[in-house]
């Protein structure tokens, strides 16, 4: 699965709401060894984002390790001090320049982070597969039909899967039962609009109490996926 690894950096909080990078799995690491393990596990490592406290050597060593491991082929994006974003006059950025592929200031906005990442990926010939849809705790791989909720696989029946896929790909929008029926269901079903209710309940049961509110009932209209901001 497409993975971004981060060191002392929270990618998700730096992305804007509709960012296509939100579909990526973000794994927060602290050592180089953990990165190797992930690679061995078969994760498709797209990029490593390393937050550097400019005066310390640890972060730079990490960048060097990733750069020098010829099997990894993982580009490195350096974030210069996520707290202050200050580039100090005695910065080691220049002397370590060969160990990273690009850098951003810790003060960078979401748009900049996204553009830099996409540019690096393009340069490395890496593509974000279009088969992952995610929202909050839910990650759907439409290629393998697998659904994770809080990294736990969900055992869905086919129509439950189809309904969830539809809803997750269009968060925040309200759909009537009739429109869900015509968009998600084919012709072979015995129920009518209430079949949608049945499947929503089944989905909620499988999402568990913690996440059942992701599928919200909009009274006398239909359903909406995603957490309400109000």
């Amino acid at each position: 699965m497409d993975t971004v690894v981060t060191y002392s950096f929270d990618l998700e909080s730096h992305l804007h709401q509709d960012s296509n990078l939100k579909t990526l799995k973000e794994v927060k690491l602290s050592t180089f060894g953990e990165l190797i393990k992930l690679a061995e596990n078969g994760d498709n490592l797209l990029i490593a984002i390393v937050n550097i406290n400019d005066t310390e050597q640890n972060g730079w060593n990490l960048c060097r390790d990733i750069y020098e491991d010829i099997n990894l082929n993982v580009p490195v994006l350096v974030v210069v001090d996520a707290k202050t974003g200050d580039l100090k006059p005695n910065s080691k950025l220049l002397q370590n320049a060969e160990y990273f592929d690009d850098f951003i200031s810790g003060k960078s906005t979401g748009v900049e982070v996204e553009i830099r990442i996409n540019k690096i990926l393009k340069k490395f010939g890496k593509q974000i597969s279009k088969t992952i849809i995610s929202y909050g705790p839910i990650v759907i791989n439409t290629d393998t039909y697998q659904v994770l909720c809080d990294n736990r696989p969900l055992d869905l029946a086919y129509m439950e899967y189809e309904l969830l896929k539809f809803l997750v790909s269009k968060p925040g929008k309200v759909y009537s039962r009739q429109s869900l029926l015509s968009r998600v269901w084919g012709y072979e079903y015995y129920g009518g609009a209430r079949t949608v209710d049945v499947h929503v309940r089944r989905l909620r049961a499988k999402l568990g109490q913690e996440h059942e509110n992701l599928v919200q009932t909009v009274r006398s209209v239909g359903y909406r996926f995603g957490l309400s901001k109000y």
Binding site: T144, Y145, Q146, P153, D155, Y158, Y161
Partner: peptide, 14 residues
Amino acid sequence: KSEEEYVLKTVKER
């Protein structure tokens, strides 16, 4: 049919 593909892939993945 896609529901059959769903079943086959799920069996493999899981």
